[in-house]
Design a protein around this nucleic acid. Structure first.
Lengths: 181, 181
DNA sequence: CACATAATGTAGCAGTCGCTACAAATTCAC
DNA sequence: GTGAATTTGTAGCGACTGCTACATTATGTG
């Protein structure tokens, strides 16, 4: 029972790498199985159906993403909200995170298309991200600030994706500017 | 020569409606042709290949989107940048615009995946959008403000898509708050 | 060792994908 | 009206999709 979960995790790691490079919604069973060194037959057997594979993959990717974030940005309170924004934007723009950005935008697009499995995962990721930001914001900041910060981050991801990083930079500078404090 | 372009436009209008309802990247030739009242054979004949169809469709959709925006928000300067943001967010949240939001997020995800045709279109749409915002901002505002505003808008689209409109609202409130002016 | 259960390989089904070969029909120039 | 060019219908190809039937092997239990 334990061993098969170990194997599943190895499969998931290999499939996650594949998805981070080639995209999530364009992934199909046979290439995924090949990346994992097994067969589509086995994926269906162990995960039920494709939705099961994708669901497990989403969980695996989300966990890996948060872990990577935690490893790169220490969970210490920063002086100003904009510092948190700049830190997370820097991480998201690093080459290592580009695959995650791709996958995330796939999740967003699928959510917008009404695919509930993706929508629930996407919503959960935002929830976790809000908590992640909160422990890094200056003491006394509200979740409203965290949510506003993350909305700007999402905007930067979109702008970067369509080749307008200068627009993202403008928003970051604006967020860094004077507030009511 | 004129008539076939008229026919093409009719096809594009029908296909655009189909895409606005069912998504762009998931669209395939046969359903598109059926929506247009013709055959996949004809689409290939008149547009060359699928990329030609999608390219024409993207142009058609972008034009329709800007036209709809112009119709709903008069090209008059507003008192504050946040007024422009709230106006465009209100439009994007209206039921009529939801299809466009879906398609736009498809374009963004495809751009992030590295599909150049989508990337160029996405970039061009942002350029047009910057100009659209500029003529509505108070006199003397810079393009930086327009870009920051649009980045926040993109963030709201993402947050709305994954079921966190309250995060989008937080960013809008934050953008509406005190600035350095 | 016998036997039930779990795990896996092989082969393939029915459907969709983008696209094309071929031929019939239509339209246009002269 | 006749020949040529454009436009369209029919049929289908080869590749891929998620998934399954069937047989076989491995594994753990009594």
């Amino acid at each position: 029972m334990n061993e098969i979960n170990v194997k599943k995790d190895q499969w998931l790691a290999a499939m996650a790498a594949h998805v981070l490079e080639h995209g999530l919604t364009t992934a199909s069973l046979r290439p995924l199985a090949k990346a994992a060194g097994t067969s589509d037959r086995m994926l269906i057997y162990h995960f039920g159906d494709k939705d099961g594979v994708i669901g497990a993959l989403l969980e695996f990717l989300a966990a890996g993403f948060i872990a990577g974030l935690d490893a790169l940005v220490p969970a210490a309170r920063m002086a100003r909200p904009a510092d948190v924004l700049r830190a997370v934007v820097a991480v998201m723009r690093s080459p290592m995170a580009q695959g995650y950005a791709r996958v995330w935008l796939d999740i967003v697009a699928a959510s917008a298309r009404g695919e509930v499995a993706y929508g629930k995962t996407g919503s959960a990721i935002i929830d976790g991200f809000v908590a992640w930001v909160m422990v890094r914001l200056p003491e006394g900041e509200t979740e409203e600030t965290a949510r506003a910060l993350l909305t700007v981050l999402e905007g930067t991801l979109v702008m970067d994706a369509v080749g307008h990083p200068e627009a993202a930079d403008a928003a970051i500078a604006w967020f860094s500017g004077d507030r009511g404090e």
